[in-house]
Design a binder for these strands. Structure first.
Lengths: 139, 139
DNA sequence: CTTGACCTTCCCATAATGGGAAGCTTGACC
DNA sequence: GGTCAAGCTTCCCATTATGGGAAGGTCAAG
C-alpha cells in the first residue's frame, strides 16, 4: 500500500501521515525501491488508532504515549490515568466555555439588537459589573 | 504612561500590547522622543476591552470588529449578531467536547486500571463499537 | 558615571493542519 | 518507445495567540 491508499483506508490524510511520522508519533514507514512510503494493514490500524484518539481530543503527545502503552502491553492503570487526566482537562475547558456562554447570553439578552448604537454587550465588555445591575440603576 | 505601566493597568502583557498593535487590533501608540510607546487612560480602556473580549473567547479578528463597532457607535444589531454567532460556535465546541467526555467516561468505566495489560480504553480506541457490547459478548 | 530596570526590534517556538511548488515515479494508452 | 496524468517525494509557508530570549538603546537613582 502506498501513502494514498493508506490514507483512504485509515481516514488520515497523506499530509498528516507524513507529519505524524516526522514528529515520531508513528514509526518511519518502509520504502519502495523508488522511495515511496509503503504501508501494511497493521500500519493502517495504527493510523486509525491515531485518528480516533484525535477525535477524542487527545494531543499528539498523549497519543504517542497511548501508542506506546498499546504496543507495550503496559498496565491498564497507566492508560486509565492518562485518559482520566484528559477528561479532567476537557471538563475544565467545558466549564470555562460554559461560563463564557453564560456571560454572553446575559449580555445579549439585554441588547435590543436594533439600529441604535447603545449596546449592553459592548458596555458590559468595556466595564464589567452586572448589566442587570446597570439596567436597574437606570430605571 | 509607558508600555509597562499600561500593561500593569490593563492586565495585558507588554508583549501582547505590542503584538495587538502589530496586527492592527489597536491603533499605533504614540511615541516619546526616545521612541518609547506612550499610552493614555483611554488606551488602557481599550486594552481592558481587548482582555475581557479574549476572556469571553472572542478571536482577535472578532475583537477587531468589536472595537470598530464600539468606536464607530454602529447599530447594536451588528454587535448582537457577532456575539450570537460566537455563542453558536462555543456551544458547538462544548457539545463536541461533551461527546468526548461521554465516550471517554464510558471507556474508562470498563477499565480495571490495574496491573494487567488488557485495557478497554485502548481496545475501544483501536476498534470502536460499544465496549459494553464487547463485555457482553465475552461473558 | 555607573548600574539596574525598562524600553526597542527581531527571531524563534508552540500545536495541528493545510496549501502549494518543484521534481521524480508509475501506469496506462497509443 | 513515448507521452501524459496522477501520485509520490521534500521543502517552505501560513494559520492562532502567546511567550522566550537576544542585542542594543534609555532612564533614573545613586
Amino acid at each position: 500500500m502506498n501513502i494514498g491508499e493508506a490514507a483512504a483506508a485509515s481516514g488520515v490524510t497523506a499530509k498528516m501521515i507524513r507529519h505524524y511520522e516526522s514528529i515520531g508519533v508513528i514509526p518511519k514507514a518502509g520504502r519502495s525501491l523508488s522511495g515511496y512510503r509503503v504501508y501494511t494493514e497493521n500500519d493502517v490500524h495504527v493510523l486509525r488508532f491515531v485518528r480516533r484518539s484525535r477525535s477524542l481530543g487527545f494531543s499528539m503527545a498523549e497519543i504517542k504515549q497511548l501508542l506506546l502503552l498499546w504496543r507495550g502491553r503496559r498496565p491498564s492503570k497507566e492508560v486509565k490515568r492518562l485518559a482520566t487526566a484528559h477528561v479532567v482537562q476537557l471538563r475544565a475547558k467545558i466549564a470555562e466555555m460554559r461560563a463564557m456562554v453564560k456571560a454572553l447570553d446575559h449580555l445579549a439578552a439585554h441588547c435590543h439588537g436594533d439600529e441604535r448604537p447603545e449596546c449592553p454587550i459592548l458596555e458590559g465588555i468595556a466595564s464589567p459589573g452586572s448589566v442587570t445591575e446597570k439596567a436597574r440603576r437606570m430605571s
